[in-house]
Design a protein around this nucleic acid. Structure first.
Lengths: 202, 202
DNA sequence: GAGCTAACGGGACTTGTGTTCCGTTAAGCT
DNA sequence: AGCTTAACGGAACACAAGTCCCGTTAGCTC
């Protein structure tokens, strides 16, 4: 694609960093408010008080901008709570995901970045990386459950963590069924029970 | 929205129906090939060999067109296979969903319509209706399992069916983990086990 | 702190998406 | 079959998205 280095890589400090932060914030605002379909780079530039040319030059397209936003989101990590039991940990995770997806701004933002990822390979890669990190952050609670003897040896920790989130994302993106505490707790319970019965043993 | 009746409702036969079929087919092609971001109504009109004005007048926007496409997709139903056991039925369902999502055209199409639904309320409603129908079609296999005594009384059939699809959609849209037979079978098994243990009792 | 140049920004320009106008075709009704 | 008018389609039009050019600002290096 770019035979020469991309803008922002040789002098990443000072102004360049400020511009990036302002643009990513503005992009997040637009995505949360209006969704991916209405993500107009000129509008983002206006909100970020940055030249339109700059946005087009550095990010090129709406999907490219979202890809960078996802890379930025992947950096920020949320602390994991430890309750001492698998069910407690998974429920904490489910409620955290629930809180994110039902928050007006965050929920809309997640829908938007997922929509963007369906349209572009690089954006999809950034999204997958984001989830890989999040899942890896929570995997230890499953490993601890195996160590405690709560779960059978050979249980795939990542698969269990995915199983907690999956029903919530399915509701958010596909079926539209209500996203409430009951749904979150049921997702955690189902994952815990299935894991205990060895459904996630590789 | 439309104080007067929408185009296509008063004389829905003959040419009008042919135009709709051609446009929806073309729209599906574009979505499968290029994704929702590149869904240009003028391009759809060209492919459908239909006047550009017609597409704008009848569907108005990209999301409106996808909403109608979803209404059309909701009509077509796939036959449910019956194996005699809950696990067998759920596995058949999981493999059917897997086959749809991994099919190059169908998978891309599903990603695209889900992306479109994140941008517009009416499109989202059409998508939810689509899944409500699909889920209701498979719910009887859970009801039969309850009747056979395989599952506890009070098990929510829809919740079990959703639990089978959810991990597959999560992989397709969010995590990007491989969509293979192992994943499908694991989803079916986990749902069956959790259901047996009463995780989906309301 | 001086020089080099990466990165920014304003403005003109091109492209193409979406609208309007109006004449043509054909559905539905008697 | 003939009439009414819903729905289609070509063409010209308006406007916004995206590109290009070139002068200005400020990061990084010495």
């Amino acid at each position: 694609m770019s035979s020469e280095s991309d803008p922002g890589t040789l002098r990443p400090g000072g102004r360049t960093a400020r511009v990036r932060a302002a643009v990513l914030t503005a992009a997040g605002d637009v995505l949360a408010e209006q969704g991916f379909a209405h993500l107009d780079l000129a509008d983002v530039a206006r909100r970020a008080e940055v030249g339109k040319t700059t946005v087009y030059r550095r990010w090129g397209s709406a999907t490219g901008l979202v890809a960078d936003l996802l890379a930025d989101m992947a950096e920020q990590s949320v602390p994991r709570t430890e309750t001492g039991t698998l069910l407690g940990d998974l429920r904490a995770n489910a409620r955290l995901v629930l809180g994110t997806l039902t928050d007006p701004r965050q929920g809309a933002l997640f829908r938007a970045v997922i929509a963007a990822a369906t349209c572009d390979e690089r954006t999809a890669a950034a999204l997958h990386r984001f989830y890989a990190i999040r899942i890896a952050e929570w995997a230890p609670c499953v490993e601890q459950a195996v160590a405690r003897g709560e779960l059978p040896e050979g249980t795939d920790p990542h698969e269990v963590v995915r199983a907690v989130s999956a029903p919530l994302y399915y509701r958010l993106l596909a079926s539209g069924d209500p996203l409430d505490t009951a749904a979150a707790d049921r997702a955690a319970e189902a994952a815990a029970v299935a894991a205990r019965e060895g459904a996630y043993v590789v």
